[in-house]
Design a protein around this nucleic acid. Structure first.
Length: 420
DNA sequence: AAGGAGGGCAACCGCATGTAC
DNA sequence: TGTACATGCGGTTGCCCTCCT
């Protein structure tokens, strides 16, 4: 380590390098006594020859009592990968999803371990795309991805209704397909779905007796069928995630497509539903109109977005569609019944620190803040200005493991879900 | 046993942002 | 509005440890 002073504290006599146990003890004692309202005053109060910045780092990254030490679990690793796919190298934001972990720790873990694993799998750690996939292959990837989706049931919620109608993917019109594709980055997370956690309070469920094609589904405002749920809950993000529905940034559309193309997602039978955040729709529209960045413009064929939409042909109906549908329906019935039993466990309200709203008693009608968030979205959004996107909002709604969103800003006021 | 290579990780650097004046 | 300072963050450095030859 260089033994030169910080530019921020060059006037001070500061020690550099590793911290000794004695220094740690002084810092802990000081913060326990005085807190750390002003880091610049901490060195003096603690009797340390360190600058405030160094004290802060040491405390945040090492001495904080709520830190979880030790190696990362497989679940933590999965979370990092999933969130990184959406947020990129925003380590502080990623770390917020991992209680007890620091941004520095996550960053080091990424650089030393995950990055290599992804590369070994042939994935670009920056984009999470297959390295072999190129921009010129996006159009065919899209077609392949469509084919992969053909067997899936897409749930579209009717306007002003809590009822979802099931559609075979291939029955959707082109714009609906595009929308689904635009949300598909969540699907890889959905493949991890195993069981609805028992720790969630369900205020209502829809009737399981509804006639087909109306499938029994849960109140989208409250059910969280995802294994990723518990970390959000533990991280006190549940409230915002439910109130401000999930977000999938269409900037990752190519990533989604390549993942589906590779078979990494979209093929494993799971029972869950996924909805789309309105921000993703807004973003998708912006994204789709960006000639420089959207997959259509880079397809190599010179087709515009509109042309690409027009060129999309409904996939051929599957021969055993109805039979498959019946099987799916029966399976869904069984799963739904199971889920109802699991979900009706009552838990005490939990409060979000920021606004003290009960996190597990949120009704579907609680849309005020969602609307506010929607309105706060940037007017322009595409890959090129991705950095301008409201990451705080996106992060607060990063339930991209396929939760719920209101698509009232487009798509005929429909909500969407799917069963893959 | 010695030393070189590589990995893990703590800590630093520099920039961006927020805030007070 | 401009400036100074504090804080936060991502990128980078370099020490230390382990493994391999």
């Amino acid at each position: 380590m260089q033994q030169m002073g910080h530019h921020c504290c060059s006037k001070q006599k500061v020690k550099r390098g590793l911290w000794s146990p004695e220094e740690d003890e002084k810092l802990i004692r000081c913060i326990a006594t005085h807190g750390h309202g002003c880091w610049s005053s901490v060195p003096k109060l603690a009797g340390l020859e360190r600058c405030g910045k160094s004290c802060r780092l040491r405390w945040i990254n090492y001495l904080r009592p709520d830190l979880k030490r030790g190696s990362f679990s497989a679940q933590e690793e999965r979370i990092i990968i999933d969130v990184h796919r959406i947020l990129g190298n925003r380590w502080a934001q990623i770390a917020k999803h991992l209680p007890g972990r620091t941004d520095n720790e996550v960053k080091n873990f990424w650089n030393s371990c995950i990055k290599k694993k992804l590369m070994a799998q042939g994935l670009d750690p920056k984009t999470h795309n297959l390295v072999s996939s190129s921009a010129s292959g996006c159009a065919s990837s899209y077609n392949n991805a469509c084919n992969n989706l053909n067997n899936h049931h897409i749930y579209l919620q009717q306007p002003n209704s809590s009822v979802y109608q099931s559609h075979q993917y291939h029955q959707l019109n082109p714009s609906q397909k595009l929308m689904v594709m635009g949300t598909a980055p969540s699907m890889d997370m959905m493949t991890n779905t195993q069981e609805i956690p028992a720790t969630f309070n369900v205020t209502s469920t829809l009737s399981v007796q509804q006639p087909r094609p109306y499938r029994p589904l849960y109140d989208p405002a409250v059910s969280i069928p995802s294994t990723n749920f518990d970390y959000y809950q533990n991280n006190n993000l549940t409230n915002s995630n439910i109130k401000y529905p999930s977000s999938n940034v269409p900037a990752n559309l190519e990533s989604c497509v390549s993942l589906m193309d590779s078979g990494s997602i979209g093929h494993k039978p799971v029972s869950c539903s996924s909805l789309v955040d309105p921000s993703s729709v807004i973003g998708f529209e912006q994204f789709s109109s960006s000639e420089d960045n959207c997959m259509w413009a880079s397809s190599g064929s010179g087709e515009s977005f509109e042309e690409a939409v027009a060129a999309m042909q409904p996939a051929q109906e599957l021969p055993d569609c109805e039979e498959q549908d019946e099987q799916d329906y029966q399976q869904q019935q069984r799963q739904d019944q199971k889920n109802v039993n699991v979900l009706t466990v009552e838990e005490p309200f939990e409060f979000d620190e920021s606004d003290e709203v009960p996190v597990n008693d949120i009704s579907a009608g609680d849309t005020d803040k969602t609307d506010h968030q929607i309105n706060s979205l940037p007017s322009s959004f595409n890959n090129a200005n991705f950095s301008n996107f409201d990451f705080e909002f996106m992060d607060s709604t990063i339930m991209s493991c396929g939760m719920y969103g209101n698509m009232s800003s487009s798509m005929d006021d429909q909500l969407i879900a799917w069963d893959c």
